[in-house]
């Protein structure tokens, strides 16, 4: 039986058989993998703590017939602080759900994304910034890596630079902002307007400040973005996150379940 070594972050676990766990792991070397942690549900298991979601481990895996088996696991990071704050824990689990959804599409960027995710979890655990702001930065970095970076500088229809006065609405299919001029002319054409799905709610919420924050978040590292939190109004941040989330769900083609819980707790 051949073995290989990877460094991975546990994303989700399912009970398997009497005492085993099936873990979905995002690894720096191979992207998303699934592996069995034998006996991980037994109280005395050495694997129990290492098989928990959000744990970072160095793993030695044995290639199995259908599923690989974890032969050895060395704990690297466990983020105990996340497990003492419900909001931060919910955000961390949302990151895990995002990774489960989009992880397979990151074939060439797995190592970069692995570092991004690990850093994002560290920042969340450190509790130095508003978790909503950190989450927006993480969402936009993920979209960037996936090639879905939203166009926020030029109108996606006329390609004219967007100024505060020209901001129209965010179009999910086109992945960017449509300026006021293009938005109005399209509204005059019923056939075209029907074929496009404008989020009118999102359009109402768009303010120049929201987009400035989005642009800022795209261009800066999560650590330096933390500084912007104190000056950013909460409402704009909430609106920006709502737009980013609806765009992510549109790209994923499914609803992110962990967001429901986050909404309930916030």
């Amino acid at each position: 039986m051949s073995t290989y070594t990877v460094t991975g972050i546990n994303l989700s676990t399912f009970n398997l058989g009497e005492a085993d766990k099936l873990i979905t792991i995002f690894t720096a070397e191979r992207g998303l993998i699934r592996a069995v942690a034998k006996g991980a549900r037994k109280p005395g298991s050495k694997m129990a703590g290492r098989a928990e979601p959000l744990a970072v481990n160095k793993l030695q895996l044995a290639t199995g017939r259908s599923l690989d088996i974890i032969a050895q696991a060395e704990s690297m990071e466990t983020f105990p602080a996340l497990r003492q704050d419900l909001i931060r824990l919910s955000y961390a689990l949302y990151y895990a759900e995002l990774t489960l959804t989009f992880g397979a599409g990151l074939s060439e960027e797995t190592a970069i994304y692995f570092d991004e995710l690990r850093t994002a979890l560290r920042l969340l655990a450190a509790a130095t910034a508003d978790p909503a702001w950190l989450c927006l930065c993480f969402e936009l970095h993920l979209l960037d890596l996936l090639g879905y970076r939203p166009e926020l500088t030029y109108c996606v229809v006329c390609r004219q630079p967007l100024t505060d006065a020209r901001l129209g609405a965010f179009h999910q299919d086109w992945g960017g902002i449509i300026c006021k001029v293009c938005l109005t002319s399209r509204d005059r054409e019923p056939a075209t307007a029907e074929s496009t799905r404008f989020s009118m709610r999102a359009a109402r919420e768009i303010t120049p400040l929201v987009w400035k924050h989005l642009v800022l978040a795209l261009d800066c590292e999560p650590t330096s973005a933390a500084g912007a939190t104190s000056s950013s109004p909460k409402q704009s941040l909430i609106a920006a996150r709502r737009i980013a989330q609806s765009y992510i769900e549109h790209r994923a083609g499914k609803h992110m379940k962990s967001l429901d819980l986050l909404a309930a707790f916030s």
Partner: peptide
């Protein structure tokens, strides 16, 4: 730590 457990192999959270 579980009864019969080994301290050396316990993870950080435990």
């Amino acid at each position: 730590l579980p009864v019969g457990g080994d301290l050396e192999y316990a993870d950080d959270v435990t």
